[in-house]
Amino acid sequence: MTEAELYSVHKGVYVPTHLNPPESLKYCEEFTFRQEDILIVTFPKSGTTWMQEIVPLIVSEGDMTPVLTVPNWDRVPWLEEHRAMLLSLEQRPSPRVFATHFHHRMMNESYFKMKPRVLYVMRNPKDVFTSSYHYYGMASYLVNPGTQDEFMEKFLHGNIMFGSWFDHVKGWLNAEEKASILYIFYEEMIADLKGSVEKIGQFLGKSLKPDVTEKIADHCVFKNMKQNKMSNFSLVPEEFMNQKKSEFLRKGIAGDWKNLFTEAQEKRFDAVYEDKMKDVTFKFPWD
């Protein structure tokens, strides 16, 4: 199926209509934030599921109950997705934890007024591309990726769900409300998960005991989290996600793009990256 059949355009970017029907986008637009809210913001395939596991465990100070009994899309719902409307989020006690794939410019009026705490997770765009390529091949609500070359052109031009990775990252890096944003990298979480848990905990005002930090980090190591049926998307019917084609939680590593890219693709990607990011002074671990 084509983009026209599977996607709608919202604020200038493609969103999958199955996940983000007009009524859920309207709900998101009218949503009232609280200052104590915690918002996980990512471009798709940048570590959202991982953060949906880590943050509730920090908030609960190591109580495993929420992550072992509630599916992650209800535990930390995406505000723009249809599930959000069904969960009585207004009744949830603070701190509420949400996720979004929205660009900074797409956030609603209440967000800019209340300035909730934001965890903005970034990942090497070559790995985002690689993870996306496998994901688009197994999810029925996304346009088939086609060949690697075809999908790369779509990715580099922002003709995929939630638009351009470059615009997404630059928009959030240029946010004026930086005091309420913690920028964190997928790669630093892989290199030092315990340190990342401590860093996120401090940002959220939680001073965790060392044994609690250890327990959270141990549970959230990729291979352990992958076994949690509340988080590995195995509860999603096969008609929507065919995990026989590719697992939703695949490898959880940095640098997997090296197993996918040809030399020509690497050159093409690098040329576009250098052009799009030439004005960005922020230091990324993959540069």
Rank of each mutant, 00 (worst) to 15 (best):
R117W: 07
P22H: 00
I40A: 02
A254Q: 15
L119M: 02
R117A: 13
E90I: 03
V169M: 06
R117T: 01
F43S: 09
Q265W: 02
A175C: 14
S196E: 14
K267L: 09
I253C: 08
A175Y: 02
F102L: 13
R96K: 09
K283F: 00
E266L: 10
D149F: 00
L39M: 15
H18P: 00
I160F: 05
V67L: 11
D218W: 06
H168M: 03
E198G: 13
N144L: 08
G195H: 12
M277C: 07
N259G: 09
E266N: 13
K278R: 14
P145E: 04
Q35I: 00
E5H: 13
Q52M: 15
R92P: 01
K278I: 02
A99T: 15
V70K: 11
V121T: 14
Q227C: 10
E247D: 05
M64I: 09
A179T: 10
M107D: 09
H219G: 04
E90R: 05
V97N: 08
S131W: 12
L39T: 01
K26I: 06
Y14V: 14
E30L: 10
D211V: 03
N144Y: 12
N242M: 02
E153P: 02
T2N: 00
V9R: 15
K258L: 04
S94M: 13
E36N: 13
G146H: 08
L235T: 08
E61P: 08
A175F: 02
P66W: 03
K278Q: 15
V143S: 03
P66G: 08
F233Y: 14
S132A: 15
Y7C: 05
V15N: 03
F248C: 04
V236K: 06
T49D: 03
M106I: 15
P21S: 12
G62I: 05
V67S: 01
Y14E: 04
Y120Q: 05
N20K: 14
G252Y: 10
F151K: 07
V197Y: 01
V9I: 15
D256V: 07
V15L: 04
R96E: 10
E214I: 01
Y120L: 12
G47A: 07
M230G: 03
K283N: 10
V236R: 02
V143A: 14
N159E: 15
N259D: 14
M189S: 06
S140M: 12
R96V: 04
W172V: 12
N108V: 03
K170S: 01
T48V: 13
E247F: 11
L19R: 05
K11L: 06
A217C: 07
P95V: 09
V13C: 08
V197W: 09
Y186G: 06
E90F: 00
L208N: 04
M230A: 11
Q91S: 06
Y111A: 12
L89F: 09
P93C: 07
K115Q: 14
Q227H: 08
G252S: 07
V128F: 07
K223Q: 04
F151P: 04
G252F: 13
P116C: 12
N144H: 11
V15C: 06
H103W: 03
R75E: 07
Q265V: 06
K206E: 04
Y141V: 10
C220H: 02
S164H: 04
F282A: 00
M152R: 05
A84C: 10
E61W: 06
S164M: 08
L19A: 00
L173S: 01
